[in-house]
Simulated scan of single mutants.
Amino acid sequence: MTSTTLRLSETGRAIGLREAGSGAPVVLIHGVGMQSAAWAPQIEALSLTHHVIALDMPGHGSSAPLPQGSQLPAYVAWLREALTGITSAPVSLVGHSMGALIAAGFAVSHPGQVARVALLNGVYRRSAEARAAVRQRAAEIAAGHHDIDTPLKRWFGDTPAEQKARAAVARWLRAVELEGYANAYTAFATGDATYADRFAEISCPFLALTGAQDPNSTPRMAQAMAEAVQDGQAVVIDGHRHMVNLTAPDVVTGHLNAWLSRTAKTREALR
């Protein structure tokens, strides 16, 4: 696996990435507070058959932040610029949490550049109560209150595998720059409905995967997303929460490999 920092041609903005393997491109986008290293199990496994590219989201890892106040469409535009500088081929796009919002927005905005899309622990049309809670957390982060204990308690249980993953996630949360973290979290808090009305436009093979015990990216949301698109599948992994790609890496990678092997249905079959 190679870690690289690229300079984007349109804006001159730096972008950090990890890549490995060869073949058809698979692009991975992490969630708020994380970095491309959070995809290590999937990079190792999927690079056996594909060219895997894991991006640092703006303001995370080695990627420069977007301007303060940027909302979800700005992150989608950032992904378009990044992919323009990386590959001309349609990509299989995987996003986790905030990365899932970016991936979904890109799939509806640039369908010709997406071969398939998988959303891990994605949010979709939050309830009024959930929306108020996440916006309150965004306001606290923007005010400089960088609390990592609360999300860690919400994301992880007490098993040895979960505690090992928790330690890695805690390191990434402590390392993230507060400006980039706050900017992305605000976009995450307000972005769950931005592209929701356009999910019906997604016709490529679609996977929505979450943990059965994830209280925020719920199984109900995964099922609703899969039903909203034209060729969707929902997968719920029992016994796991929000960081399911780290706490159940082999199970998640197995579902991603199955998704990568799915053949796109014809327009006639989708009708």
Rank of each mutant, 00 (worst) to 15 (best):
S3T: 13
T5L: 08
L6W: 07
L8Y: 05
S9Y: 00
T11I: 02
T11H: 03
R13H: 01
R13V: 04
A14T: 08
I15F: 11
G16L: 09
L17V: 07
R18P: 00
E19R: 14
E19L: 03
G21A: 12
V27M: 06
I29C: 10
H30G: 07
H30N: 14
M34P: 00
A38F: 05
W39Y: 06
W39E: 02
W39C: 05
W39R: 05
A40G: 01
Q42G: 08
I43A: 06
A45G: 12
S47G: 13
S47P: 10
S47I: 11
H50K: 10
H50N: 15
H50Q: 13
H51Q: 13
H51A: 14
V52G: 13
I53S: 08
I53L: 14
A54R: 11
G59N: 06
H60D: 04
H60I: 06
G61E: 07
G61L: 05
S62W: 02
S62V: 01
A64M: 00
P65K: 05
L66S: 04
Q68K: 13
Q71H: 07
P73V: 06
P73R: 04
Y75L: 09
W78K: 02
W78E: 04
L79K: 02
I86N: 08
S88C: 11
A89V: 11
A89R: 15
P90T: 13
H96E: 13
H96S: 12
G99S: 08
A100Q: 09
L101S: 13
L101E: 11
I102N: 01
G105K: 05
A107I: 00
H110G: 00
G112E: 11
G112F: 03
Q113P: 00
V117E: 02
V117D: 03
L119H: 04
L120Q: 12
N121H: 13
Y124L: 09
R125Y: 03
R126F: 12
R126H: 09
S127V: 11
S127M: 08
E129M: 09
R131W: 04
A133E: 15
E140P: 02
I141G: 05
I141W: 06
A142V: 12
H146P: 02
D149E: 15
T150E: 15
L152A: 10
L152M: 14
K153R: 15
P160G: 12
E162W: 09
Q163P: 04
K164N: 11
R166E: 14
A167V: 09
A167L: 10
A168E: 08
R174P: 00
V176T: 14
E177F: 00
A182C: 04
N183I: 04
N183S: 13
A184I: 01
Y185I: 02
A189E: 03
A193P: 00
A193H: 09
T194D: 05
A196V: 07
R198F: 06
F199K: 06
F199V: 05
A200F: 07
I202D: 02
L207D: 04
A208S: 15
L209F: 06
T210H: 05
A212C: 03
D214W: 05
T218C: 08
P219A: 09
R220V: 14
M221T: 12
Q223S: 14
V229D: 01
Q233I: 05
V236I: 14
I237Q: 07
H240E: 14
H242R: 07
H242C: 10
M243N: 09
L246P: 10
T253H: 01
T253E: 09
N257P: 00
N257S: 13
A258V: 03
A258C: 01
L260F: 11
R262N: 01
K265L: 02
